[in-house]
Amino acid sequence: MPTEDREDLTARADPVAPAATADPMAPAAPAVRFDRVTKRYGDRTVLDGLDLEVGRGERVTLIGPSGSGKTTILRLLMTLERVTDGVIHLDGEPFSHMPGGSRGKLVPANERHLAVRRRRIGMVFQQFNLFPHMSVLENIVEAPVHVLGESREDAGRRARDLLELVGLGDRADARPTRLSGGQQQRVAIARALAMRPGILLLDEVTSALDPELVAEVLDVLRDVARSTDITLLCVTHEMGFARDVSDRILMFDRGRIVESGPADELLESPAHERTRAFLGSVR
């Protein structure tokens, strides 16, 4: 309706055509690649020519002061925002852009280009964002049935399995508004996983929770990280959790990566003064 029919008529996007920018010599394309990505709101630059690669199955945590651009990275990847400049690649193919115009020059992606590709990505939000007019089970079943075309029986069975996984097997018929914050967030995790995403984005998923509810959510996520090979991009202030699940931690400040390294290394002996100051402030 309002946005779906916004098609770029000059674009002849062929989803299976090799992308002009893909490197044929690369062994395996990274799951996510930001290529000189800039994001501005008006004259405020949130990301400034960011280069970032996340390998398949890699778990990366983004840390840094608020306003440093971490959440913007997740929102750009989820297509909730559009890049101002630069290109985001998914599995080695342009995602934020698509071949179009003359000689396969990249143009900003239209809705059709994004629609199929973004199904590889799932996201869990700080405020849960469950659908209040649906039961817990309906929240989880909704997209598998209406987007992936699964049968109600199959989707329902899998939803119940996922509810068991997040420890809410007995709340399938409850309204989200009747659940605690921690329970709602666990439902949101199950809902995201129901779409079988290859990449899961976690945007400060415990920041809106009462302190005593944080652990139950993080335990579920540790489980997910342990039992799947999903690619994780995580923005969090929970350093213990970051250390447990991350292969790599990136320290952000003012839209740039200040420092990056293996979780233990970066948390134990940060090389950069800015990182030391930040870690000192969150502990």
Partner: peptide, 10 residues
């Protein structure tokens, strides 16, 4: 946004 994150079209 939750709908977009679940791959739902407009």
């Amino acid at each position: 946004e939750a709908g977009i994150a679940l791959g739902m079209g407009a």
